[in-house]
Nucleic acid binder design. Structure first.
Lengths: 351, 351
DNA sequence: ATGCTTGAGGCGAACGTTCGCTTAGAGAGA
DNA sequence: TCTCTCTAAGCGAACGTTCGCCTCAAGCAT
């Protein structure tokens, strides 16, 4: 922090009381046009910027929003981090807010303590949460302590107890299913996440919807669960390709790009060609998805719009005391079709 | 911000003046052990946390560090962002500091205004800069205004006018060259960046060093410059593979992974196999590098250590008024050898 | 002339800290 | 006993704002 120009210095130079300068700065009327103009002149001349610590102290708000997120493992990039952060602090800046980033702790008790600390020390006015999962401890904690927040993601489908925006992952997977069905695929497998993943279940639900819409039966043999890594994708796919040829899938829908990467490797390892022999789709539309061999069909989320919307929502609440309607929102992802689902020729004789 | 417990409330309950409580909180001696214990008891009981706006106002420092970065285009992930941010705010938290993120502006004037604003409003005590390039306007501006900062990256090799940590990209490329030479490659091409890129030039310099060390001549035909995208990598490699067979390269060293991705595609398109026929190396060790086909040999940077070090350095300066020695540091990257440089069989007859 | 309204601006106080000085009292040395 | 030092604690002030209330003078209707 620097020794910077204060209200009093501006006031002295402009020949008014410093409180009057404050009024001008904050657009609180009852100042004559001439005086106001003169004051603005002095402000520009001295390059005055209001001290935010003084302002925050008096106003009892810091114009700062906190955000934390779980770090990605080294072999797995966070596909949305850059865009999400950028969109949030860009939207924040327009309203005179900034984004404070702080460390994530896997330990719930420790994490809640940090939230509490940050809020009670007056460092932040509220939080943005992301990647919620069943049993998220932060949500009830923040609600109970009346700490403002918005979330990217929801906990339960019908729960509107806090404001959120979420991507309808199920709809994304359903789009992928429609696409595969339209190409002629009839035996479609799913590489799903463990059952304790809310996001995973939401996406998987789109798989069932897709099957139902196409009038296909779901076959438990064709659903393999595991962590969303390429290793799991590889193993699961190797298993699927080893099934008897009459029940072997011709396409594999993966709940994220990492699994799809592993799946494509397994397809090649089995001497087959992804796209032509076995359709593969991912989810996230990782930047490198389009550079894989073959380029991966994937599902992209409108991250910038979500980040901007979340931040504006939170700020509106902080400023006015109520959230804009609708309180909760579900947005549709977009299917990006590439070669990993191109060129499939259905075998004759099968419907 | 919440209505939280203040010093005065703690003091009232403990039967001392609030200034004495302040002394205890800040470990400023001259308080008897019993009183101190009693005060700590009340603090715990009331769950007191010092208000940072009051503290910042009085201390004239905010314990906050600012950081901004250029957003990546949608098809190109920022390979270091997550790790860099995490390491920075983790190190900051240990010292009671936090990281404030704010929007990047390509327009220099606008960007400098933001730096000035953030510092003069007392929102931040200093900055971390990254991705410096020739003619970076922020460096002279911050130096001139005596605004504290540290940088990830340098401007000129011998310039020590500001504290920085940089990766010796040249050494990384030189490692890749050694590796390729040891495999028997004698004609090695480089996909370089435009000449106005300081980082690019630093890396390319390692290419020349590697050639010299192996006693090989540098051939201008084998150096192609362009933006660090996969499209450029593809085109440049297509050109290189079209050269007469006696001067055609057997290996291609790329200044980043994106170019290497394009290069490998071009190699395959030409009916050759990356690794066996043409060795390819990248730089950055993007998380997906290991999942490419074939897995890409690349150069990784010790990002977490750099982020932590930078933050600690800056905080030490803010606390003590001087930077720890050494003021500037160059760290070595690490070559990650994978299949894109495996299995090469040198043609007979050539040395 | 009187009283009422309105606009322009001043003023004291408060937000929650920390800083530096003062003071009361205890204990020590002469 | 007197002073001198030391420790524990108190006190006033200040950091830079914003808030609410007050004052003063001009304008206007009665």
């Amino acid at each position: 922090m620097s020794k910077s120009v204060t209200l009093k210095e501006v006031a002295a130079k402009a020949g008014v009381s410093y409180q009057t300068v404050s009024k001008v700065v904050n657009n609180k009327a009852s100042v004559s046009p001439e005086t106001e103009k003169r004051i603005w002149g002095v402000i520009a001349e001295l390059n005055y910027t209001p001290n935010y610590n003084g302002r925050s102290l008096r106003r009892q708000r810091s114009n700062t929003v906190g955000y934390t997120w779980e770090p990605s493992p080294a072999d797995q990039a966070n596909p949305i981090l850059d865009a999400f952060l950028q969109s949030m602090f860009r939207a924040a800046e327009e309203e005179g807010y900034y984004l404070l980033c702080f460390p994530f702790h896997a330990d719930d008790v420790r994490m809640l303590k940090v939230y509490h600390q940050l809020y009670n020390t007056g460092r932040v006015d509220g939080f943005v949460l992301s990647r919620l999962n069943y049993g998220e401890a932060s949500v009830p904690f923040l609600l109970e302590n009346k700490i403002p927040f918005v979330a990217f993601g929801r906990l339960e489908d019908q729960d509107q107890s806090f404001p959120y925006i979420d991507v309808d992952g199920g709809q994304g997977i359903a789009q992928a299913m429609d696409h595969l069905v339209s190409l002629g695929h009839r035996r479609i497998a799913a590489l799903a996440w463990p059952e304790d993943s809310r996001v995973g279940n939401n996406r998987l639900e789109g798989y069932y919807r897709g099957l139902a819409k196409a009038g296909l039966m779901s076959d438990p043999n064709l659903i393999v669960r595991g962590e969303g890594t390429s290793a799991v994708g590889f193993e699961a796919t190797t298993y699927l390709l080893g099934l008897p040829v009459d029940i072997r899938p011709t396409a594999i829908v993966c709940m994220n790009d990492m699994m799809a990467i592993g799946a494509m490797q397994a397809v090649r390892t089995a001497g087959l060609q992804p796209g032509r022999d076995i359709g593969v789709t991912g989810f996230d539309d990782t930047p490198t998805a389009r550079y894989l061999t073959p380029p991966l069909t994937s599902i992209s989320q409108p991250i910038p719009a979500i980040g901007e919307n979340l931040m504006k929502r939170l700020i509106e609440y902080l400023e006015t005391g109520s959230y804009p309607e609708p309180r909760c929102e579900l947005v549709a992802p977009n299917l990006e079709i590439r070669e990993s689902t191109a060129g499939y020729v259905p075998a004759k004789g099968r419907s």
